[in-house]
Structure formats: structure tokens, C-alpha cells
Design a protein around this nucleic acid. Structure first.
Lengths: 363, 363
DNA sequence: CTGAAAGCGCTTACAG
DNA sequence: CTGAAAGCGCTTACAG
């Protein structure tokens, strides 16, 4: 009944007001070349008609789509919601839309995904890269979200510091025998987190590291991690590099009759949605994705504005541009502090040696 | 070093070959108005230069952006990765990009999100709507992913049938006393799932329903669900309408010394990523998001093609269009069967009455 | 079978 | 302060 009248266009409001399209455009863009009085009338009329400029027209003319591409290693990744949400907001605040792409596992698909995004005319790309990605080969402005150990333009959480946080927390609770649980020793993120933990675990605390992929390579996918035995051997704290692994540890321990946090503590990383939905709720480390996303988008828009739009006649070629037209940008390296979230899976080290039930009739 | 030459444009390949832009355009579009020989040369040259048409130019001319909007109630939803991934692929296969938007909780934000998408010129919208959304008010082609109980153009999993699947499974295992766990009684999806379960639980099986929101309203957010007591009262199977609630049940039971699946069975819904990462792995019901997404995108592209592009001069106004230019579309109502995934949290009902440890020193 | 022309909706120098 | 004109890259009737 209401709504959905035909979308008004610039020229309509121009003729309605008896002015030129140029004036309307300038007024709406706030380019100041218009009398305040005229500008006001134009803005009023535009608002009245619910005018929104056509992206297509503007994009064609300016060479800018006002759209960013978001490339992720694997959309199915449980961290994806947090990242996508944060990027979407940051981008939206900066006047950009977000087009998604999925690397679907391999670097080849990632390359294709990036190309597709470019074919669709994105102004820049936010990427959480797969191992082995050559960022430099991407012909668009790029912001990388990874770990501070990644070279190049990067924004990320300070995973190392996050590691220190958990380890210190466990130390403070009296734990002196810990198992650090990771998945893959070649991940920068995981290595940083573990490295941070290790850096705190000096002196009289002992620890070892369990890499799940290695373990599964030997015992089969989805196998038991043998945490109950570890507990019986005296480990009182299990510190995983991700909530996913913490969940695995928690359920394995609980299923084996090891009580958390009474008999052993478990901690994770990432603060995934379900981490409060479990009993006991998971102690974890939270990354401030909102800030990370803002910084990534800010870095990206800076790059975009520095680079001349591709499809524009370059009247006077800038002094500070390389032959490819890419500005000589200094690499951004930002890292955002992580925050420890105290919940119920971590508690004081048991005073008396833990009594772990023996055998255990697992099916 | 290589790559990133200036993007070639249509006219470049035209002049290079000494033909008109029109011919190049026709050849590339396969419009047949070009000799096969010429077409071949043109295609070859285009491939050689890595030509990709400018979306902006094409969009401006055709009135079509080849982009779909994806609107979700809450990007942070754990189901989002599955949905986004599936939609992205289906859309990509159909030649569309996907722009994301976040409803961030309320209907008002959802409305704004939809408007933003429209301002960015999307050709259509895939929406997983919030309660109370008036789909009819959206001025663009829309495909809705929800439950079959939702009126209008809808594609969805057959949640009711999924419910039957789990309930029958538990019945087959000998369970006769079940607790169905839901969150919110006003959700169509959850009601369908529970309804399906109930429809199977006739005869000598007894059950009751626990709505978590109600329970939390009385006992506080994040409270204990009291499942151990239920178990002691004779419940042997806990069937949740989502993996999230199943996880909550599982950890609560495990933490209270109730062994799963030996003492009690637990089942979920959705097959979230972590459902194999827990011990024991979760028995759940999987939705075929790939198929759902394909159907949603297919329905959407059909609508898009039926509707005349907004910004086009409508030479001869079609016979079968309403005054708003929207085609009189018959409502699509498709539902995709769900699949039971047997894993370790469900097992035969215990032969002897379960011995649940009493007290329980929860912290 | 091929080309010349118009135009999609905007913005940006340039004149006045 | 305002307007006329050109042009972003494409596609689509229409002529030839």
C-alpha cells in the first residue's frame, strides 16, 4: 500500500526543484558549492522522497563500489560469526557493504574467491588468510587479520598476551602441573597463544603440550585424548588454545568422572557463543573483535583512499604512487589486547591429591 | 610483478580486434548475433586479456546488480556459518554475490538492514526472519528460510519430520520416559521439532517439555536445569531442540555424575561444528543446508527474473504484473527432509533403574 | 552478421 | 552560487 513507489532519482528531484542535477549532487554531497538555502531545500526534498543515490551510477562514475570483500579460510569456522558480525558493523559504519567469500579449505579456492570478489568490483578486501597466502599478489587494498607473527599489514588480537593471561591465572590458582592443548603446531595464532603461556610457566611449574592433530594421526580421528590418565599423573589444569578444544577436554574429563573444576581446571580461548551454555561455564579468553574489525576496516579504507580509483582518468599522476598505482603504504601492525573471562571451569588446585576413578568402561 | 595490469575494458578488446563494442558484448553474452568465427576470436582475446565486465557498467545499464542480500536475525547465531556458507555457494553458482546484513536482535534493526541492502542495489533478499517480520512489506524479491509453518514464500528443513526421527530413534532404543528440551515456545522451528517428537510419543511412552526461557525466568539466567533430579525421577532420554541445549544438558548431566549414554541419552538438533568434538559425540539431526540454500536461491532468482528491473524503461508493460511491477507469484513452500545422525550420546535404555549419585556438591 | 547511437544514474571539472 | 556537458563501461533496440 505505502512504500515501494518507484525509487526517485537525482534528476527527478532536480526537475522538481527547478535546478540542475549537478547542484543536487553537490548539495547532497555537501560540497559547499551550493548556497545553504538551496542545499536545505534540496536535502528536504530528497528526504521527503526517500532518495538514495544509485550505487551503480555512482560506482560507474567514481570507480568505487563502496563494497568490501571478506575472505575467510572456512566460513564454517566457529569464529566466523564473531568476525563477520564485527566486520559488517565496522564496514557499515564506514559506509561500506560486505560481500562474503569462502576459501573452502585450499589456497586455490581462496585465490578464486579473491578474484571473484575483485570481478564484482570490491574496493578492498579483509582477509583471514590461509597458510601460504601471498598477500602481496592480491591486486587490491588488503587488510589481514591473523596473528602479530604474520608479516605485512596486519591487525590481530594479541594472542601471546592472551596466553600469558590464562597461564598466570592458573598459576595464581596454585596449579603447578599443566597440559597445554593445541591442534596444529604450524598455526601462528596457536603458537602465539602457547608461546605466551609457556613464557609465564617458568620456575617450579611444569607443563607439556598436546597437539591434537599429532595425537589423532596416531590414534585416529575423534579418539580419546587420554586426559584422565594425565589427571591421574598429576595434571591439574588443562589449558586449550581454543574453546573447541577446551570443550573436548571438558566433556572427556567429565565423562571419565573427573570433576571440573574440583578435580581439574579447564580453560579455553575465543569465548564462543556456547561457552556460557555449558555446565560449568567455561573460563576463556575473549578477543575484542569489534576493535579488531574497526582497525582492519580503518586501515583498509585508508589504503583505498590513498589509491586512485582504477577506472578514473588519472589527470595528474600522483608523485607518491608506484607504477602499479598502488601507494607506497607503510605496513600497519596493530594488536589488540585480549581479556580473560573468569567463569566456572577454573578453580583452585585441589589440596589433596585427586582421586580419579580407575578403569572406566568407555564404550 | 605479474598480475594487476590495468583491467581491460570492453572497448579495448573491441578496438584491438577492429570490431564494435556491440559485437564484443553480443559475442561474450552468446547472443548469437555474431558469426561463430568472430565470436571465437573475441572470446579468445577476452580470455587472453583476462577480461571481466565491469559490474558497475553492467548494473547501471541492466538495472541488475547480480548481488543478493542475506539477512539474519543474528549473525552471532551458531547456525550462521552453515547458512552463510550454503547461501554463498548456491548464489555463487547462480552468478550472484552475497552481501551480508545483521538484524542485531530487533525488528527495527532488521528493517534498517533490509533498507541498506536495497540502497546498495541488491536484486533480491534471502532472509531468516525474526518473529513479527512483515515480509510482504519488503519491496524486493524475497526468499524466506524458516519453518514450514511460516506462511508465504518459504524454504526450510522439515523440522517436524526431524522431530519424528529423533523420537522414533529414542523409542526404538527402549526409552519410555523422556524430557523434551526447548528454549522458546513461540519459535516456529522449535515448536515444529517438538510437535514432531510428540506426534511419535504416543501409547506407553511418557514425556514432558522443559522450556528453558521459562525456567530461567524463574531461576535466573544460566541456572541449573535440574536434569539430575529428572534422571533420578526416571527420565532416561533428554531430547533437545538444538545442539546448544543438548550441550547444556550433556554437561550438566556429566557434571552431576550421570553417565551419557549409559545412564541417560541426550540428543540435539542442527549438527553444529563442535558436535563431534565432544565426548561422547552428539547424536543429532542434520539439516541439508546445501539443498535448502539452492532452493531458496532458485526461488529467488526466479522471482528476480520474473520482475522487470526497476531502473529499466518499461517499453511494453507486462500483462501479468501488478501495479507495483511485482509479478503475481504463487507462493513457494518447500521443505527439505532432515537426517538423523547417530553418534554416541544416545544408547539403549538402562536395564536396571539408574543409580544416580544423590546430593552433589555443585559450586 | 555487424555497427552507430542512445542511455542507464551519477559526479566532476569547467564556464558563466 | 549554479548549470551545461562530458563520460564512467556496459547493453540493447534499431539500421544497415
Amino acid at each position: 500500500m505505502s512504500a515501494s513507489r518507484q525509487r526517485p532519482k537525482l534528476t527527478q528531484i532536480a526537475t522538481l526543484l527547478g535546478v540542475s542535477a549537478a547542484t543536487v549532487s553537490n548539495a547532497l554531497a555537501g560540497k559547499g558549492r551550493v548556497s545553504e538555502e538551496m542545499a536545505e531545500r534540496i536535502r528536504a526534498k530528497a528526504a521527503e522522497l526517500g532518495y538514495m543515490p544509485s550505487q551503480a551510477g555512482r560506482a560507474l562514475r567514481t570507480g568505487r563500489s563502496q563494497v568490501l570483500g571478506l575472505v575467510l579460510p572456512n566460513i564454517a569456522n566457529p569464529l566466523f560469526p564473531q568476525i563477520a558480525q564485527a566486520i559488517e558493523h565496522a564496514a557499515s559504519d564506514a559506509g561500506y557493504g560486505v560481500l562474503i567469500a569462502d576459501s573452502r579449505g585450499d589456497v586455490a579456492t581462496q585465490t578464486r574467491a579473491i578474484e571473484q570478489l575483485q570481478d564484482r568490483g570490491v574496493d578492498g578486501i579483509v582477509i583471514v588468510p590461509r597458510r601460504g597466502t601471498r598477500i602481496a599478489d592480491i591486486g587490491s587494498p588488503v587488510a589481514v587479520i591473523d596473528s602479530p607473527s604474520t608479516p605485512g599489514n596486519t591487525v590481530s588480537a594479541d594472542h601471546w598476551q592472551g596466553g600469558r593471561l590464562v597461564a598466570q591465572h592458573l598459576l595464581d590458582l596454585g596449579h603447578r602441573n599443566l597440559l597445554l592443548i593445541g591442534n596444529n603446531p604450524v598455526s601462528n595464532v596457536q603458537n602465539d597463544r602457547i608461546g605466551g603461556m609457556k613464557s609465564v610457566l617458568t620456575g617450579n611449574a611444569q607443563f607439556s603440550v598436546l597437539w591434537i592433530e599429532d595425537h589423532e594421526a596416531r590414534h585416529g580421528k575423534g579418539c580419546i585424548l587420554g586426559l584422565k590418565e594425565k589427571a591421574r599423573e598429576g595434571v591439574t589444569a588443562f589449558a586449550a588454545v581454543s574453546d573447541l578444544h577446551a570443550l573436548r577436554a571438558l566433556t572427556e574429563l567429565q565423562g571419565a568422572g573427573v570433576r571440573v573444576p574440583d578435580d581439574a581446571s579447564v580453560t579455553g580461548f575465543d569465548d564462543l557463543t556456547w561457552s556460557t551454555a555449558i555446565t560449568p561455564a567455561l573460563t576463556t579468553v575473549h578477543m575484542d573483535m569489534a576493535t579488531i574489525a574497526e582497525q582492519a576496516v580503518a586501515a583498509l579504507t585508508a589504503l583505498i583512499e590513498a589509491a586512485p580509483p582504477v577506472s578514473q582518468k588519472r589527470e595528474h599522476v600522483g608523485h607518491l604512487t608506484t607504477q602499479t598505482g598502488k601507494p607506497v603504504a607503510t605496513a600497519t601492525q596493530k594488536s589488540v589486547p585480549m581479556e580473560l573471562i573468569l567463569r566456572q571451569t577454573s578453580g583452585p588446585v585441589p589440596s589433596k591429591p585427586t582421586e580419579i576413578p580407575p578403569a572406566g568402561e568407555k564404550q
